[in-house]
């Protein structure tokens, strides 16, 4: 059943994109992330797995400072993107998020046309000088998100009119359009049917050619199918991090083993 595509598993020669050291996240008094160290490689799909409430989404949201929008949330520790501390005072979270794109659990196209959805990022960041440039970016992004053929004749129709899977690919196209370096995906397939899921998974593997992709998922099969590196989170701790093959076949920690064999979670 889990015919994993023949992915390239050996990625250790890639450069380190994100490097997190001793990251703690607090929601008010509650400590949601308790000291996480992890290195995320370029041109690699890294999967975060773990039971609900283990902090994997919270940690993901630290990587583009989306947690800043939550009043009571506090992040400590050191997270570096290409060697620069992203929580440094001099860093503008808005510019960081342009570099670190995000796709959310539920497809959230804006109530605008398909074209305007994709063009949103390039417009606010001034990436296109002419209308032709913008058209090119939109087409390229939609092609990259494998949506061009379905959407090219209806670019002026509302993005909310697409099916769930198409909407999620539209959101991926929208994230891709700002030419990010890293793409964060927070359970991107949890609201999709199996066919749409397969399409998005295929897409994720293609996106790896150009980006570093981090995906949070509830589905271990999905993690096994799409990722090269897997991190297992449990109760706010990063229990185990390693090659996906190793995590799923030969976990070192017994909690990881319990989880992937279905005993906890």
């Amino acid at each position: 059943m889990y015919d994993a595509p023949k992915l390239e598993r050996n990625v250790d020669d890639r450069t380190i994109k994100f490097s997190a050291r001793n990251v703690h996240v607090f929601y008010g008094e509650t400590e949601a992330i308790k000291g996480v160290d992890v290195d995320i490689l370029d041109n690699t799909v890294t999967a975060f797995i773990g039971p609900s409430g283990c902090g994997k989404s919270t940690f993901l949201r630290c990587l583009n400072r989306m947690n800043d929008t939550i009043d009571i949330c506090r992040v400590t520790g050191d997270i570096r993107l290409d060697g620069h501390d992203i929580y440094d005072r001099s860093v503008d979270p808005v510019q960081l998020r342009a570099k670190v794109g995000m796709v959310f659990q539920k497809p959230n196209p804006f109530p605008k046309s398909i074209y305007d959805n994709v063009a949103y990022g390039p417009r606010i960041h001034g990436l296109a000088r002419t209308r032709a440039d913008l058209d090119a970016i939109v087409e390229q992004s939609l092609r990259r998100a494998a949506l061009w053929d379905e959407a090219k004749d209806r670019l002026d129709q509302p993005g909310t009119g697409l099916s769930g899977g198409q909407q999620q690919r539209l959101c991926i196209a929208r994230a891709v359009a700002t030419s990010p370096e890293v793409l964060l995906m927070d359970e991107p397939c949890s609201a999709l049917d199996p066919i749409a899921t397969a399409q998005v998974e295929e897409l994720i593997d293609e996106l790896r050619q150009d980006y570093s992709v981090v995906i949070v998922t509830h589905s271990m099969q999905q993690a096994a199918r799409v990722s090269q590196k897997t991190a297992f989170f449990h109760l706010g701790h990063l229990v185990e991090f390693g090659d996906t093959g190793q995590i799923f076949t030969n976990p070192h920690d017994e909690r990881t083993e319990s989880y992937i064999t279905g005993r906890i979670g």
Binding site: V94, F110, I124
Partner: peptide
């Protein structure tokens, strides 16, 4: 989710 979407794109 719409707010997150916009902020996540660097708006």
């Amino acid at each position: 989710s719409l707010r997150d979407g916009a902020l996540g794109l660097g708006a």
